[in-house]
Amino acid sequence: MTDSELKYIWSVPKYLPYVQPELTPEILEQAQKQIGYNLPEKLVEILKIQNGGYVRYKLAETLHEQITGIGPYFLSLTDFDRTVS
Score class of each variant (00 low, 15 high):
V19Q: 07
F80I: 14
I67A: 03
H64K: 13
L43G: 05
E61W: 14
L28T: 06
K33W: 00
T68L: 08
T68A: 11
L75H: 09
L47T: 03
L16S: 13
Q32M: 02
L77M: 07
I49P: 04
H64W: 03
E65L: 15
E26T: 12
K48Q: 15
K14S: 11
Y37F: 15
V84S: 05
G52H: 01
E26P: 04
T83G: 12
L28R: 05
P40Q: 14
T62V: 07
G52P: 01
G36F: 01
S11W: 11
E22G: 11
L16G: 02
T62M: 04
L6D: 05
E61S: 13
V19P: 00
S85R: 11
A31N: 04
P40D: 13
Y54H: 13
L63H: 07
F74A: 13
K14F: 08
I49T: 09
G69Y: 00
L23N: 00
D79M: 06
E5N: 13
V19H: 01
D81C: 15
L63Q: 09
S11A: 14
E5C: 09
P21G: 04
Q50R: 09
V84D: 02
N51L: 02
V55F: 15
T24W: 06
F74G: 09
G71I: 01
P72M: 01
T24H: 06
G52C: 02
V19L: 03
I27E: 04
L28P: 07
V44E: 05
E45F: 08
K7R: 12
G69W: 02
G52L: 02
Q34L: 09
L43C: 09
Y73C: 02
R82E: 10
G53S: 05
E29K: 07
L28S: 06
I46T: 11
L16F: 12
K42C: 08
Y54E: 12
Y18M: 12
P72H: 05
Q20V: 02
F74E: 11
Q32N: 04
L6Y: 08
V44M: 08
R56K: 15
K14C: 09
A31F: 04
P72K: 06
L43H: 10
R56S: 14
E29L: 05
F80P: 05
Q34R: 09
A31T: 04
L47F: 11
P13I: 08
P40M: 06
L43I: 11
V19A: 05
E65S: 14
I70G: 01
Q30C: 08
E26N: 10
I70R: 02
